[in-house]
């Protein structure tokens, strides 16, 4: 596959050298009495793209929310560079270099594109004008619409804005919750190309996706979640050719 060749060799294994950038250890998360995560463990190495696959309700979004401090686990640990960060509120956790692009984009609909991007840099004492240029280079359409109120953007543009907004905070690790949701295939293609570009510039990605084929083509490694537990984890190629994955997430019939 041609897309595989664009990845730098050895990136996927770089994780084993030091402590991984992000590590989740045996996370149990509850919504009231319902156990959403039943002991999820995973790791994301520096520079990697890791895909998190699974059906609706498998716990993909919950895993991301636990990683960015939006919800606290009842037990288990969240580690960044080997240091425990679970229990730290999300507004403080962003200072550790985590950017979270939430499900459904959730741009500030009544603010302009530029205002949204500026809020993305809220955590920085002195925002760097170069960051704005970088976002506008990645997403030229946002530059054209910088004065436009975000609620009037198309779905794809809103997704670009949500990613751009998170980039403004200079994240080391970008958590992406279903960036392809509800978008036309062509736009999805574009967004995944840009994600590849962002990764090649040095940002680590943890990607939640229903669109398994797109996600696995971009990712180095993947995890498959089912009802709150990790049921498979492997290199992206292996998952992509696994008959169970193909049957469950790529819409192929089992022979």
């Amino acid at each position: 596959m041609s897309t595989r060749l664009e990845k730098e060799p050895g990136q996927a294994t770089a994780a084993e050298a030091g402590p991984p950038l992000l590590e989740l250890r045996d996370l149990h998360v509850y919504y009231g009495a319902i156990e959403a995560l039943k002991g999820v463990s995973l790791s994301v190495g520096q520079g990697e793209v890791v895909a998190l696959l699974g059906a609706n309700g498998a716990g993909k979004s919950t895993t991301l929310k636990a990683a960015s401090g939006m919800i606290g686990p009842r037990s288990g640990q969240v580690l960044l560079h080997g240091e425990r960060v679970d229990g730290i509120a999300s507004h403080e956790l962003v200072q550790f270099g985590i950017g979270h692009v939430p499900e459904g984009r959730r741009v500030f609909a009544r603010m302009t594109v530029l205002e949204n991007l500026k809020i993305g840099a809220y955590r920085l004492r002195r925002p760097d004008p170069a960051d704005l240029d970088r976002v506008f280079t990645l997403f030229p359409r946002l530059a054209d619409r910088r004065k436009q109120v975000s609620g009037t953007l198309s779905g794809g543009e809103q997704q670009m804005l949500a990613i751009g907004r998170a980039l403004m905070g200079k994240p080391e690790l970008l958590l992406l919750d279903e960036p392809s949701m509800g978008l036309a295939p062509l736009i999805v293609q574009q967004i995944f190309e840009i994600l590849r570009e962002i990764n090649s510039q040095g940002t680590t990605l943890l990607l939640v996706e229903q669109n398994a084929s797109q996600a696995l083509q971009l990712a180095h490694r993947g995890y498959v979640l089912e009802t709150g537990s990790v049921v498979m984890s492997d290199a992206a190629d292996t998952l992509l050719s696994d008959p169970r994955v193909r049957a469950a997430y790529l819409g192929e019939a089992i022979e």
Binding site: M70, H91, R110, G120
Partner: peptide, 12 residues
């Protein structure tokens, strides 16, 4: 507009 996302941006 969205307190949850605001805190993801680092707003206390």
């Amino acid at each position: 507009q969205d307190p949850e996302v605001a805190s993801l941006m680092g707003v206390n």
